[in-house]
Design a binder for these strands. Structure first.
Lengths: 179, 179
DNA sequence: TCATTGGTGTAATGTTATAACAGAACCGGC
DNA sequence: GCCGGTTCTGTTATAACATTACACCAATGA
């Protein structure tokens, strides 16, 4: 059985910023960029202008962004903007754990915890498009145990949960009572 | 193709057929088609030739199949083979629970339990490409509980676990000891 | 019988992602 | 400084996945 005795820590961005329209999003952005800078320094990797800009663009919101959306933003910024430019930057950021790819959306979202080598489990709102990475401490253990019963060894996990976020649920409630 | 004719030690479609190269795969195919026929009859839906053929093609193996792979097979069979033909058939089969889409592969796999309204959780072997749907009784409850802590209501779940299946693990062991 | 519905045919296009190769920028050793 | 390897970027083309829009046909049923 799975239990949840999870007490996730809180940093400048609160626990579920994507579903909190009162959080200071500038903090999310600057925190993400700071972490990226620091991480690249320690790894002797280069956070070049394109890469940095892609990371910024992705952190503009908590909605996963498609590669071609990023591309058109880059173009507007005067960057080169052929597909490989973006995909290379995305690959780099993915490799360093600064991003996650959301397979069910073909889109990318920032990760605010690139050091901690964790699994990306996501709540994705089908209404507003926001996505929130969640901690689910025992989930991986449970999945691995379950898989091993079939003799299977898990290497990577795609867990993407779609539905309605608290903000959209509230709005829905209002619009219903308005009727 | 994963099948053999030794009927001594096998049930028609055992628990994890995708990872068992001794199961009688003909049984998987005919069982899936029978269930589809029956289900369409009770729902007054039409399992037209294209739809039936697509379902057959998908059940040729336990490896998820891309839409364009299906397309080229249909073409070889003399069917019309423009993308909409396949995607319409796939949509129909998905709606009736006869298939699942694997988002992380952009591919489709048969579901051998279309009546039982269950979640599709998958083990996907990165080496041989086979995928096996698994039951994980508590998982959905756990995920929903976990999500509700963030005020989120889950509507659909994408759980795709990639790794190595028992058959490929065994092979890997051999090839290592061969060195 | 004729109107409605559901299914298919066809052409075009939209969206996401990669291949292949050339050239520029960076960096460590001399 | 400058050479040579490596990493990063520019560019063109194309692969892979999916949808739109509209025309037509076939089964159903008042």
């Amino acid at each position: 059985m799975i239990e949840n005795n999870d007490t996730s820590a809180q940093d400048s961005c609160d626990e579920n910023p994507a579903f909190n329209n009162r959080h200071n999003h500038q903090d999310c952005i600057s925190s993400a960029l700071d972490k990226a800078q620091a991480l690249c320094r320690t790894r002797n990797s280069r956070l070049t202008p394109v890469r940095k800009r892609v990371l910024e663009l992705i952190w503009q919101s908590h909605k996963p962004l498609g590669a071609y959306q990023i591309l058109s933003q880059l173009a507007a910024d005067g960057f080169n903007s052929a597909p490989p430019t973006v995909y290379r930057a995305l690959d780099f950021l993915l490799e360093h754990g600064l991003l996650h790819r959301i397979a069910s959306l073909n889109a990318f979202i920032g990760c605010n915890n690139p050091n901690h080598n964790h699994h990306g489990y996501f709540l994705i709102c089908r209404s507003c498009g926001s996505a929130q990475e969640i901690e689910a401490g025992n989930l991986s253990t449970y999945l691995r145990k379950n898989a091993s019963a079939a003799g299977f060894v898990i290497e990577s996990e795609t867990v993407e949960l779609s539905g309605l976020c608290p903000l959209c649920l509230e709005q829905q409630g209002h619009s219903q009572s308005d009727k």
